[in-house]
Nucleic acid binder design. Structure first.
Lengths: 196, 196
DNA sequence: CCGTACAAGTATCGAGTCGAAACGATAAGC
DNA sequence: GCTTATCGTTTCGACTCGATACTTGTACGG
């Protein structure tokens, strides 16, 4: 308990700090000819499972419209960072896949610079901040939409693994490869999730 | 030490969480007919001292150009939330002042919603997060510009108070009212600042 | 089958933002 | 007094984003 009693000011400034960091992070993401929305989209595609690598899911995640998401994807496709492959069953759907060039440029994600700064914090601090931010995210998204994402094993729709080693999703009524099951899903149902 | 050893994943996700919160906070700020940049500007004007209530300082703070800042101020002036009054001595300068309407709308700052979420965190968590974010801010701004701001009493340019109760700034070679000295300054020099 | 309802994705248009650059006015230094 | 630097604005073009309408495809009910 070495901490002094905290003035009210601090509570206010946390919100301002978050806003400020957000703006800085945003500013960092104008590089390599991309803009923040495009970086966000690349990251989303890289970390999402098959069900979620679609224009609609991206729009949900970014809190934007399908039209805008489609345009962003157009820009990225034109630059050669991703391709869109038709779904085998549902012909309305086009799955987004990173190209090798896309994976390469992701290695230069400007947010890595944020990681460097984070590395200089103590593990305890990072832990506390992560928990706090996750709680904030949860509280906020109740108010302003935005989609929570998680992985199959902690998802309410998860129905266990099949004989051939795939994961069964009760929501999509479909299987997912073991690899994809570790990626984030836009249809994540936290009802079964424990902490984190 | 109840915390489990933390996986690498967590360190990565902190950066992503910050990005995510930033985007959410940004999304919240499309309301009352204003956009994020305009809210940021209103907040800046409300919390800045006389020296900093100018178009140039706003640009520095927002990490944008003077031209863009000027346009944002135009929009806000047209909506009646602020006015620009010429400086008595330097005729190049126009000081930005909130109108009563500006103060009113600031009471409905959408970031207050973030404050509500923050209120539900423990004081210790808020404290740790605030310190951590401040450190991140400092580290980041070294890399990507952006101006740190602070108040006179912890500023390297502060030269004490004058006979008539004003605060003397060695950088601007000018006095500041006691009230303004408690507001943030774009010329803040942290060399004399202790923690916070 | 056929028709309706709905969902995924795309194209188009207009408002608005932003940055770069040029400009005018003023201040400061020699 | 002349030159240079600073503050702010304006203009222009590229681009983003949201709203809307549209195309294509699926599901369901008769």
């Amino acid at each position: 308990m070495g901490a002094q009693p905290i003035e009210n000011v601090d509570k206010e400034s946390l919100a301002r700090l978050l806003d400020r960091i957000g703006r800085m992070a945003r500013g960092l993401q104008y590089c390599h000819g991309l803009n923040p929305a495009q970086w966000d989209s690349l990251r989303f595609v890289a970390h999402s499972n098959l069900f979620s690598r679609t224009a609609g899911a991206l729009a949900l995640f970014l809190g934007t419209t399908k039209g805008t998401a489609s345009q962003t994807l157009n820009a990225l496709e034109k630059k050669g960072y991703l391709t869109r492959v038709p779904d085998a069953e549902d012909k309305r759907i086009r799955h987004i896949e990173l190209t090798p060039a896309g994976e390469e440029i992701l290695a230069e994600d400007p947010l890595n610079c944020l990681d460097l700064a984070i590395d200089r914090l103590s593990a305890d601090t990072v832990d506390t901040m992560t928990r706090g931010l996750q709680e904030l995210c949860t509280n906020l998204q109740a108010r302003c939409g935005g989609q929570d994402m998680g992985i199959c094993t902690s998802c309410g729709h998860f129905q266990g693994s099949t004989d051939d080693g795939n994961m069964r999703c009760g929501y999509k009524q479909a299987d997912l490869s073991c690899e994809d099951a570790k990626r984030f899903c836009i249809n994540f149902d936290p009802s079964d999730a424990r902490d984190c």
